[in-house]
């Protein structure tokens, strides 16, 4: 229980929170254009499985990550089609996508590999080039390059949302699509873009879980991380900084839970301990009152529906 313990804990927190904040950033785009996304989990599952497939067939994990992005994008496109194009109910569509991709990936996994586990594939668990860094190299190199990619995405997202014209429009669509339309901006394009970016980022988050943390895909491996990402977005008030902080907090509880399990310090059943991050999420969310809300979140916007 010395310095090394804390370093291990810190690395563990970073590793565990990465998928939540990458998916959370994706969800931020999605919710900011007014589309609720309970399908983040499904998009991550799709991304995780597609990434493993890509790596399995090409032997190159980066191609795997690319495939993961495509996998997330496919799920995102489906959500966009239902919610943006046809004005479907967001919550139903999202939950449907989560169930659909849990099922589809299991089906494909069984039919390709004959098992609910895939074989081990080339992965991205460590960052070789950072291992040469003096003193910290040992720790920096022990993290997946996708962790750094995630950090980069957070910084870029901050600039995109708060410093670009596109970001200004994204902020407005989430509050009042009619205003945006009367300013001569295509609301549908904005909404599509937000949902598709979300699919893409959730795909990366899924790829991180299958190739960055592990080197394979198995059924149920996302284990609610997508749902925690949805919570992280609300707790983080739709801002990259807040989402990052919340994801780290949830990751911390996850890491503590894992440590307690591994060390077997107290005689609590592991299932109880696994509840920890989720309970923490619910607790923080319920303490947060009067949070700012996006006025147009979870609404339908269909052309010609409104009388101006």
């Amino acid at each position: 229980m010395t310095v090394s313990f804390f370093v291990v804990l810190l690395l563990s927190v970073i590793r565990l929170s990465t998928p939540m904040f990458i998916a959370g950033l994706g969800n931020m785009y999605c919710e900011r254009v007014g589309i609720l996304n309970l399908g983040a989990e499904g998009m991550m599952v799709s991304g995780a499985f597609a990434a493993v497939l890509g790596s399995y067939y090409t032997g190159n994990p980066w191609i795997g990550v690319f495939c993961g992005m495509v996998g997330g994008l496919v799920a995102g496109a489906l959500h966009a089609l239902i919610c943006v194009e046809f004005g479907g109910l967001h919550a139903i569509s999202g939950l449907g996508i989560t169930m659909l991709f849990n099922g589809v990936t299991k089906f494909l996994c069984l039919s390709i590999f004959g098992s609910t586990f895939t074989p081990n594939v080339a992965a991205l668990q460590t960052t070789k080039i950072l291992q040469g860094v003096p003193v910290l190299g040992k720790y920096l190199g022990a993290l997946s390059p996708l962790v750094y990619l995630g950090g980069l995405i957070a910084v870029i997202s901050y600039f995109v949302i708060f410093r670009t014209p596109y970001g200004l429009r994204v902020q407005m669509v989430g509050d009042d699509p009619r205003t945006v339309e009367t300013a001569g901006i295509n609301v549908w394009k904005m909404r599509y873009s937000g949902v598709l970016i979300c699919g893409l980022l959730c795909g990366i988050a899924g790829a991180y879980m299958s190739l960055g943390q592990l080197d394979r895909f198995f059924e149920g491996m996302i284990a609610g991380k997508g749902m925690l990402a949805v919570i992280a977005v609300k707790m983080g008030k739709w801002e990259p900084k807040g989402i990052l902080g919340t994801a780290l907090l949830l990751g911390f509880f996850d890491a503590v839970q894992l440590q307690l399990q591994i060390n077997g310090i107290i005689g609590i059943p592991p299932e109880m301990l696994q509840l920890l991050p989720y309970v923490a999420g619910i607790a923080v969310l319920s303490l947060q009152t009067g949070a700012t809300r996006l006025a147009a979140l979870d609404t339908q916007y269909l052309r010609n529906k409104y009388k101006f």
């Binding site: 902020q171 509050d175 205003t179 300013a183």
Partner: peptide, 10 residues
């Protein structure tokens, strides 16, 4: 417009 087209947050 009669109902203003403004986003209060911004």
């Amino acid at each position: 417009h009669q109902h203003f087209m403004l986003v209060p947050r911004l």
